[in-house]
């Protein structure tokens, strides 16, 4: 690997050829905000929140996708950068429900974003929640169109291609073919789309129902890493436990084998752990010869 030297915010740094500006910033400039960037998906650079200034470039460039070049001069903060970030936060904040998106309140404060200034009449993507199966719900009022679920379902992970972006412009939305219910689609309920969703537009039914009932309490939850016991692959699981009950299962994204991906059994097959066997085994030899 060739090392490249570049200048970020006045400091000379080195980075491996082929890495992105965001990666080159490493923990150092951890303050580049991102929304559509996920650790396990090649970024689509659709949200444009991570924009930075690169000397010689007419427009701002997305730090998540632009590879470093020798002698590049990068500014991760400037008036132009801050303005773009503020506007992206306002555009999303005024059109999408970001109540379950991490960091948004802090970023709004930091960049002076005021999503309220577009008024009550501003167009939004508000729509009814899609509940068409027992395992997860799709609340597209919270969707920022980061493309991660589409890529996770498609060629980057699951190869199921159940969902795609349909429509165009502000009408663009994540959809199955002809908007059929998931139960009529090729969905295998791996839930890898839930894993990558940064805004809570896709959440397990267990979480959705607890939130609706007002019993979801993340502060009261403990997480425990373990190994899935269903088959011999040995996928890593993270059990989210509240009141001694598993309320959700995710998967560690830094797992070198599974990268946060699971199958339906690992992600959703946890109820047997706590339900026990509600019907005791029978001792009647005639019932089970």
């Amino acid at each position: 690997m060739t090392e490249i030297s570049l200048n970020i915010d006045g400091e000379n740094v080195t980075a491996e050829e082929g890495t992105t500006i965001l990666q080159a910033c490493g923990g150092k400039s951890g303050d580049i905000p991102t929304l559509c960037y996920g650790d396990t998906i090649t970024p689509k650079n659709a949200c444009r929140l991570c924009m930075v200034e690169v000397e010689g470039s007419r427009t701002l460039v997305p730090a998540c996708s632009r590879p470093v070049e020798p002698d590049m001069v990068v500014k991760t903060r400037s008036d132009r950068v801050d303005h773009a970030r503020k506007m992206v936060l306002e555009f999303l904040g005024s059109s999408v429900d970001l109540s379950l998106t991490e960091n948004v309140t802090e970023w709004n404060a930091e960049y002076g974003a005021d999503p309220e200034r577009y008024g009550d009449a501003a167009a939004t993507v508000t729509q009814p929640v899609k509940v068409d199966n027992d395992l997860y719900v799709r609340d597209y009022s919270k969707c920022i169109l980061c493309y991660q679920c589409v890529d996770a379902c498609g060629e980057q992970w699951q190869n199921s291609f159940v969902i795609e972006i349909a429509g165009r412009g502000f009408e663009s939305h994540v959809s199955t073919e002809n908007d059929v219910a998931l139960t009529d689609s090729a969905c295998v309920y791996c839930g890898n789309c839930i894993q990558v969703c940064p805004t809570g537009a896709l959440i397990p039914t267990s979480e959705y129902e607890m939130r609706a009932a007002g019993t979801w309490d993340e502060d009261a939850q403990e997480t425990t890493n373990t190994i899935c016991a269903f088959c011999g692959v040995g996928c890593g699981l993270t059990l989210h436990v509240q009141d001694n009950t598993i309320v959700k299962v995710t998967s560690p994204e830094d797992n070198a084998i599974t990268h946060g991906n699971l199958c339906i059994k690992g992600r959703f097959g946890f109820t047997h752990v706590q339900d026990g066997r509600t019907i005791p085994p029978t001792a009647d030899p005639e019932a089970h010869p």
């Binding site: 689509k44 650079n45 659709a46 949200c47 444009r48 929140l49 773009a84 506007m87 992206v88 555009f91 999303l92 005024s94 059109s95 577009y118 009449a121 501003a122 167009a123 920022i144 169109l145 972006i165 429509g167 165009r168 412009g169 502000f170 009408e171 663009s172």
Partner: peptide, 21 residues
């Protein structure tokens, strides 16, 4: 521009709508 934006990036997808408003 609101009609013709492909909808991929936020500045154009939402910006063209806000501009029209």
């Amino acid at each position: 521009f609101r009609d013709e934006s492909c909808g991929q990036c936020v500045p154009c997808r939402v910006g063209t709508v806000r501009q029209e408003e």
